[in-house]
Design a protein around this nucleic acid. Sequence first.
DNA 1: ATGGCTGCTTTGAGCAGA
Length: 272
Amino acid sequence: MPLRIATWNVNSLRVRLAHVLDWLASNGADVLGLQETKLIDEKFPRAEIEEAGFHVVFAGQPTYNGVAILARKSIFLPPSQVVVNNPLFQDEQVRIIAADLVHVNATAAHPLRFMSVYVPNGAAVDTDKYDYKMRWLTALKKYLAQQLNAYPQLAVVGDYNIAPEDRDVHDPDAWRDQVLCSAPERQHFQALLDLGLKDAFRLHPQPEALFSWWDYRQAAFRRNRGLRIDHLLLSSALAGRCAASGIDTAPRKLDQPSDHAPAWATLELPHA
DNA sequence: ATGGCTGCTTTGAGCAGA
């Protein structure tokens, strides 16, 4: 059975829990990285998620950010070796969680190392927040270089807040040099690919103008005025076993949607 | 040029998101 992994910026898990549980049931994802849970740990809906058949590890803070990993109990042992944030970067904001996922019938020598990341938005070019985003991405590259050495089967999924190429943007001229699309941001994304990571979405043919985020304003989703900023980056060992990938825009059509849609990939792993 | 939505916040108008 192929393994389906996914990422979703839910923009408040309190508001979106039903969407997440419905999507897991209908889409069949086995592992899901969440971003922008916006929940302190005391308020995280652990029981509801576990009752739905998933292990969960999470790290939050008041109001902003917050990340989690869900892993289907019928396939995985409880997540282990959990690490929150980047050990190489002092950060007051909670934007990364990583864990080992071991198959219940594990035969592989290496676990699946799964990381859910929420890259800073950056606000606008030439702001303090943009500088923070640049420093954050520099540190992420150093961390992932280490992680790739330690974990041959590494998946780094999340909201990267970067549209890698013009074809990932509904109106490239309007977005030229703007935050999410600026050349320095794209160079940071390319630097991650240069480590050997692969963008799962681009491993397979895709429809044109398939995006993962649309502004809440001005009917942007109905007009498909979106960006592709949510990505699954795979180590070469995983990329070689990636059978399919895509973005599911169905949840963006629901009432009270997240402004992001889930992105996913399937992996043919022999008991990862 | 501005604000356009949405969620959050010692429930309010302001911040943040992208």
